[in-house]
Every structure is written in structure tokens, then in C-alpha cells.
């Protein structure tokens, strides 16, 4: 019994320790941003590996999610005689929720885990230590560019996801199921608000970008420098990112779209 409590206590202290280390690292990463603006090539390199290489999965997923929304939405709305509102349904679902959230989850799985593995491996093979000994701060040289790249890429990816999704929904709704094209688009344009829906969606994806990239980079930097340690850190990145994104999504949604 006492052992159990002790274990719980140790885990709790360990949890807070990690939380603390994570935040200290976050500040160190941010501190490296100013000098990075002069060496932007490092960031561009990372935007490529983190953003461009995620394009394929985002495009495909966005298209399919949009098409499913079109299909399912039609099936539900047709019972109320409201199938002309399909455009609104697809657009709002994507722009407000699915775009930012699903993109963040896919990003965490593809780019986040890759970042963790890369940094963890650099730690395990003493590359980070070697940089330190060469008087180069590994946080500013390795972590900050990747962090900025994630921050820049996420909203772009989410926008692409939503845009392709709407097109996919139109493809299914108008093309396949016969919803009136004019009604589809005009009802959507009438109801989707630039400020309320699109800006808020972008803000969500920016927040997710910060959180997911931060977790990915931290887990890599903080991992146990063995192959087992790196593999566990990669798993943690995906799991913690997913939980954080979903939890934050609820909070953000309540703040943004709650009743005033």
C-alpha cells in the first residue's frame, strides 16, 4: 500500500519535473528566434521537411474527409428536406473543427514523430553534445528552426485541408448527389463568416502548431539517449500531442463559439 503511494508520489513529482523542463525549454527555444531571422535558410530547410513533405497526406485526407462529409451530411439532411444546406454543413465542419484538428493530429503523427526521432537520435549519437563542445547552442541551432517551421506550416496545412475538403464535399454533393450547385455555394457564402469562422480556425491551427511542435521537439531533446528511449519518446509525442490538441480544441471552441 505504502509502496503504491510512494510510486504515485514519484510519478507525480516526475510529471511536474517534466512539465517544468518543458517550459524552460520552450523559453530557450523562443529566445533563439531573433537571431534565426538573419539565418532564415535554416527555417526554410525545416519548413520543407515538416510542411512540404506532409502535403501529400494532408491533401489526400482532406479530400476524403470532405467527400465523406458530403455523403454523410446529405444522408442526414435529406430527411429534413434541408439538403440544400449541405454546403454550409461541410464548410463549417471543416473550417471550424476538422481542418485545424485533423491536420494537427496528422501532423503530429507524421512530422511530429519524425522530429522527435531525429532529435533523439542526434542526442543518442552525441551530435548535440558535440555541438555544445563546438560552442554552438544546440537548442538555437537545432530546435528553434524546427519549432518555427512547425508554427508556419500548421495553419497553411490546415487551410489546404479545409479548402480541399470543401471541394471534395462539392464533388460528392453537387457532382454525385445532385445538390443544386448555386444553393450549395451561395448558402455557404452567406453563413460562413470570415471573422468568426475562418479567422478562428486559423487561430486554432496556430495554437495547435505551437503545441504539437513544442511537444515533438521537447520529447526528442529530453529522451533517454538509447534506441529504446528514442522509440518511447516518439510514441509519447504522438499520444501527448493528440491529447493536447483535443483538449485545447474543446477549450478554444468554448471560448470562440460559445454563446455570448
Amino acid at each position: 500500500m505504502l509502496d503504491g503511494l510512494q510510486l504515485l508520489g514519484q510519478n507525480a513529482i516526475g510529471f511536474f519535473q517534466r512539465l517544468g523542463r518543458g517550459h524552460i525549454l520552450f523559453i530557450a527555444i523562443l529566445a533563439g528566434i531573433p537571431e534565426l531571422l538573419a539565418r532564415f535558410r535554416l527555417v526554410i530547410q525545416q519548413v520543407y521537411s515538416v510542411g512540404v513533405l506532409s502535403l501529400v497526406i494532408i491533401l489526400v485526407s482532406g479530400l476524403f474527409v470532405g467527400m465523406v462529409l458530403g455523403l454523410q451530411g446529405y444522408n442526414t439532411l435529406v430527411d429534413f428536406g434541408a439538403e440544400e444546406s449541405l454546403g454550409i454543413m461541410v464548410a463549417l465542419s471543416l473550417v471550424r473543427e476538422l481542418g485545424p484538428v485533423v491536420t494537427a493530429l496528422l501532423f503530429a503523427g507524421r512530422a511530429g514523430s519524425a522530429l522527435t526521432a531525429e532529435i533523439g537520435l542526434m542526442k543518442a549519437t552525441d551530435q548535440l553534445s558535440a555541438m555544445e563542445m563546438m560552442a554552438v547552442d544546440p537548442i538555437r541551432r537545432v530546435l528553434t528552426p524546427r519549432f518555427l517551421a512547425g508554427f508556419i506550416s500548421m495553419p497553411l496545412l490546415a487551410a489546404i485541408f479545409s479548402a480541399v475538403g470543401v471541394l471534395g464535399g462539392a464533388l460528392v454533393g453537387v457532382g454525385l448527389l445532385g445538390v443544386d450547385e448555386g444553393a450549395f455555394w451561395s448558402q455557404m457564402q452567406d453563413r460562413v463568416d470570415l471573422h468568426e469562422d475562418i479567422y478562428n480556425g486559423v487561430i486554432k491551427s496556430l495554437v495547435f502548431g505551437v503545441v504539437v511542435t513544442w511537444i515533438a521537439v521537447f520529447e526528442g531533446y529530453d529522451c533517454v539517449p538509447t534506441s529504446e528511449g528514442v522509440s518511447r519518446a516518439t510514441t509519447r509525442t504522438v499520444v501527448h500531442s493528440a491529447l493536447a490538441v483535443l483538449g485545447l480544441d474543446f477549450i478554444l471552441t468554448a471560448l470562440m463559439f460559445g454563446e455570448d
Binding site: A91, A159, A163, Q189, D193, L194, I198
Partner: peptide, 10 residues
């Protein structure tokens, strides 16, 4: 994509 969303969707 952002532009398209702003123009055609909103």
C-alpha cells in the same frame, strides 16, 4: 487555400 476559403466559402 486561405484565399479561396476567404473568397468562395465565406
Amino acid at each position: 487555400a486561405l484565399f479561396m476559403l476567404a473568397m468562395k466559402v465565406s
